[in-house]
């Protein structure tokens, strides 16, 4: 049995394609693309079939959709207030949908069955988006000068410390999600590799190590992102 934290390279893009010449195609990249495609198809289906049939009295699919969207909106607005909460709800929902779909694909084993967040590149990308959002909202609220000044309070001595703390945010966000989801995946792989344990038991354990773990990590990622943005604009 061989479990590595490096992703498996399935193929290389040919050199002829400009910009991406020789880019490796890993199994996590395939899962990420499959998840994105599945989400797009689901969104299109919802747009074509569910949305025109929305009524004043919700029923069936409409109930589920409204529950998800309103739940996320209520959560972000509860933390950041009306204006910012409304702006950030779609981004947070996108992250939740993407990582949730990856967990679902891992669960049913479609494609290469290695979820995208078990690749440090994927989680670091998501964390960088959050980092940019923190800076953009912070600068938009206070201006560049005010933002720099907030680093230097209460005294200019701690400026470098605060700078390092700020730069550590994407690293810690990325490593946390990467470590947790990779850890859950490794436990499940170990379980499957032992013949005596590889039936019945995984069905129960994957409920924890795949579903609950993934959901928890999404929740923590969203909560921390909102907390950091809240800190930047206050």
């Amino acid at each position: 049995m061989n479990i590595s934290i490096d992703t498996e390279v399935l193929a290389h893009l040919p050199d002829g394609i400009a910009l991406f010449g020789g880019m490796p195609i890993t199994n996590t990249l395939v899962t990420a693309l499959v998840a994105s495609a599945a989400l797009m198809v689901l969104a299109l289906l919802a747009r074509i079939f569910a949305l025109p049939r929305f009524r004043e009295q919700p029923a069936g699919v409409q109930n589920v959709l409204e529950l998800m969207v309103e739940g996320m909106q209520r959560y972000t607005i509860g933390r950041l207030g009306d204006g910012l909460g409304n702006q950030l709800a779609p981004y947070m929902f996108t992250i939740a949908a993407f990582i949730g779909m990856n967990g679902f694909l891992e669960l049913i084993g479609i494609g290469v069955a290695r979820p995208a967040p078990s690749d440090l590149n994927c989680t670091f990308g998501l964390a960088l988006v959050t980092f940019v959002l923190i800076q953009v909202y912070g600068i938009k609220k206070k201006g560049i000068k005010g933002r720099l000044k907030s680093y230097a309070t209460p005294s200019p001595v701690i400026f470098p410390i605060k700078l390092v703390t700020d730069l550590a945010v994407p690293v810690s966000l990325a490593c946390r999600m990467f470590g947790n989801i990779l850890g859950g995946m490794i436990v499940m792989e170990l379980l499957y590799s032992v013949a005596a344990l590889s039936f019945v038991l995984p069905a129960f354990l994957s409920a924890y190590f795949t579903v609950f773990h993934t959901g928890m990590q999404v929740f923590i990622f969203i909560t921390l992102s909102l907390a950091f943005i809240e800190e930047a604009v206050e």
Partner: peptide, 23 residues
Amino acid sequence: ILGLAITESTAIYGFVIALMLLA
């Protein structure tokens, strides 16, 4: 839950470093 997440991440850093070493 927020506090636990931040605390847990120290353990996760150790875990990630262990995996990097094992590789």
